[in-house]
């Protein structure tokens, strides 16, 4: 009895000391768990909303700016949109034929954006773009020098019997509403990647197409082809295939493809200029500063009569240097 009372007394120093020790041990345990969580689990769970790399254009005076490897004198390097490449290569061949000392390298497609970036980084002398410059690109000092307008055509495999469709039908095809050609063969749609200049040109002129195109990307409805070259090949070998392509690509490379008439008009200079043929895009050189030397010479050649004649011969519409 007396013992119980002694235990019960909270004032009993021994009992309260042992209780305090117990609490201390428990708090230590809890703290241990907390430390474990903080040291081992929290770092694993802690992500960063900030990406671990630098964003945007590196200013040229920055230490981070990568100097390009110096290029040999007398060689002109061009790279950019695949849309520009057939015409530009044709122009380059003509240019080199006229002045044999000069060498011009037109690289495989890196896209319009890649062309602008490569020019900015001074990796190439001129970029090739098939879309208007973005504001951001203009801001860093890149200039666009237009040289040709190219109709965007609806190209089909030669197995397709049709020679003309309407713009509405085009939208229906991309929306998946029209699935068969006139002979009953199934239609195979080949799409370029999002942001392709050809698709952009058609979407700009035909809102119904823009919607169908966007929906098709979202739903992965069609096969997406990433380059002009691949697109050309795919169209040429796939029965019933249809896709968007530059007119010049067909004629310059003698591809086994057919361009369909749209609403009764073919992609001729006259119908494009008059706006009756609705789809076209402008090709331009991208240059960082006022181009000089070989670059300036080449640009001049592109705008020369010889260059303009070459363009016209292949369905391109020459554009003046400054619009």
């Amino acid at each position: 009895m007396e013992y119980t009372v002694a235990m019960a007394e909270t004032a009993d120093p021994r009992a309260s000391a042992s209780l305090a020790a117990l609490w201390a041990a428990v708090l230590l345990g809890v703290a241990g768990v907390a430390i474990l969580a903080a040291v081992f689990v929290a770092p694993l769970l802690a992500g960063s909303s900030d990406p671990p790399f630098l964003e945007g254009q590196v200013p040229k005076n920055s230490l981070l700016y990568q100097r390009s490897t110096p290029r040999p004198h007398g060689v002109l390097h061009l790279a950019g949109s695949g849309s520009n490449i057939p015409l530009t290569r044709a122009l380059a061949d003509a240019f080199v034929a006229r002045s044999p000392d000069a060498h011009i390298v037109v690289f495989e497609s890196i896209g319009s954006s890649g062309g602008v970036m490569a020019v900015y980084d001074d990796v190439v002398d001129l970029g090739l773009i098939s879309r208007p410059l973005r504001e951001r690109e203009a801001l860093v000092g890149v200039d666009a020098i237009p040289y040709a307008r190219v109709p965007v055509v609806v190209a089909v495999n030669l197995s397709v019997p049709d020679t003309a469709i309407t713009t509405d039908e085009l939208a229906d095809i991309f929306a998946g509403r029209k699935t068969r050609w006139s002979d009953g063969a199934p239609i195979t749609v080949l799409q370029r990647e999002r942001g392709d200049s050809g698709h952009a040109a058609v979407a700009k002129a035909l809102p119904a197409f823009a919607a169908a195109d966007e929906a098709a990307y979202r739903e992965h409805r069609w096969r997406v082809v990433l380059h002009d070259r691949a697109m050309q090949e795919a169209l040429a070998i796939t029965p019933g295939a249809v896709g968007l392509l530059d007119v010049g690509a067909i004629s310059l490379q003698r591809l086994p493809l057919r361009a369909l008439e749209l609403d009764g008009y073919g992609p001729s200079e006259a119908s494009v200029q008059s706006g009756r043929y609705p789809f076209s895009k402008d090709l331009a050189f991208a240059a960082l500063e006022a181009p000089s030397g070989l670059a300036a010479e080449f640009i001049r050649f592109a705008h020369s009569d010889e260059g303009r004649a070459l363009m016209k011969a292949h369905g391109y519409i020459p554009l003046p240097e400054v619009q």
Partner: peptide, 10 residues
């Protein structure tokens, strides 16, 4: 493409 790879976004 040792130089141009980085520009070929596509």
């Amino acid at each position: 493409r040792p130089v141009l790879w980085r520009y070929d976004a596509g």
